[in-house]
Write a protein that binds this DNA or RNA. Structure first.
Lengths: 212, 212
DNA sequence: ACAGAAAGTGAGTAATTACTCAGATTGTAG
DNA sequence: CTACAATCTGAGTAATTACTCACTTTCTGT
């Protein structure tokens, strides 16, 4: 369908407030359309329509469909890192026990995906992302693992060796279970709050449990 | 792109061995093509080409693209349930400790996705599945949880209440972490065998840990 | 007021692709 | 061998869709 191969850089940077609002509208519309239709079926025409602008305007600010997905993903990475930093800062005050800290972490992650549970999945798995973005994702995930590891260091009841790998597994576990539960919840078998509680229980048991 | 809306039933059931082989070829080709291109970009023409038959032959046995994905998914559900039954039977001999049993479960699940790590994700998330198939998936997942719960009942060291919900969380955890690790392994931070070991450790700690 | 820049429009284009069909080829029963 | 069914072929069709461009409208500085 693509006539030419477009770049990934924004074409014309918005300078007036009107155009900045348009770009915001476009991103919001894209999030909604991708969430409900998937990447391939989320057409650029539909995105423009939902945003309330013409298709030409869309291509004035984004050189191609991929670029929109990349922008959404990069925005999500930034937001997630912000939330994680906030959580780490709160944990660093030392007023919380391990369990409350883990509870906070899982809650933050669930909130992050509460609004559009499928979107991150779609961006990650269905979108042809350039290698650069994959690198960014990997780096961001490693930073998250490092942050979590650092927080865990504050709790002497954790006696497990290789805390960095432990932090990595915690991040992976929370991330993947949160995604899964947000996207396909089985409220019949396990309601959301119970799921959260059990997950925190599992993580706590893992961290303070016998080293072997 | 679709002119008419096709059904999901196979058009002409293969009766000669030649055509049965053709259908197998088509499914194998579809698995390969979807795995490497995703659902939307995995074209029917390409599937037919990889299978070594003409596009017309493909449509003689499958009424539409979706039907191929559904067939692949149903096949995967059957295979997974078989593997799970085998594992439960082995666990029922009573010769394994809890840890070995969990290790076996995780190993089985990792093996299931080792060959085509992305395929299940693609079928589940990118394919427009009819409601019937989603029901089947949910049912299959619940059966898996029931099987695991039953196995866990054999181990008196597990004192946790609501074993059915515990079994459900174990299934969800293993399923989602296995998918994630098969699809995007970060061998640099955590090699596969170490990942398996830590996951088993986490599950064990969760199951035998303090009830509160 | 006005020139030029920024922003927006949407019908149209070229490429892609799911699917069809008229007929050729291969297997099989009597 | 013959008739018929099963199987296979692949060029062609209609629908879809990413993207362009010639043009209009709105804003801003002077």
């Amino acid at each position: 369908m693509a006539k030419h191969k477009p770049q990934l850089e924004r074409r014309r940077p918005p300078v007036q407030s009107r155009s900045r609002a348009t770009v915001d509208e476009l991103l919001a519309a894209a999030a909604q359309v991708f969430e409900s239709h998937g990447y391939a079926a989320g057409t650029t025409n539909r995105i423009a329509q939902v945003a309330g602008v013409s298709i030409g305007t869309l291509y004035q600010y984004f050189p191609g469909k991929d670029a929109i997905a990349v922008a959404l993903l990069e925005r999500h990475i930034v937001e997630t890192e912000e939330r994680l930093r906030d959580w780490a800062a709160r944990a660093a005050t030392g007023r919380w026990g391990l369990r409350a800290t883990l509870n906070g972490y899982v809650t933050v992650m669930m909130e992050t995906h509460a609004g559009r549970p499928r979107l991150q999945h779609i961006l990650l798995e269905e979108t042809p992302l350039p290698a650069r973005v994959h690198q960014d994702l990997l780096k961001s995930e490693r930073r998250a693992a490092a942050t979590v590891t650092e927080v865990l260091h504050r709790y002497p009841e954790i006696r497990r060796p290789h805390l960095d790998q432990v932090g990595f597994l915690v991040v992976q576990t929370v991330e993947s279970l949160t995604h899964r539960f947000a996207a396909h919840p089985d409220e019949q078998v396990m309601p959301c709050d119970r799921f959260l509680g059990e997950l925190v229980l599992m993580l706590t048991a893992y961290l303070v449990g016998p080293a072997r």
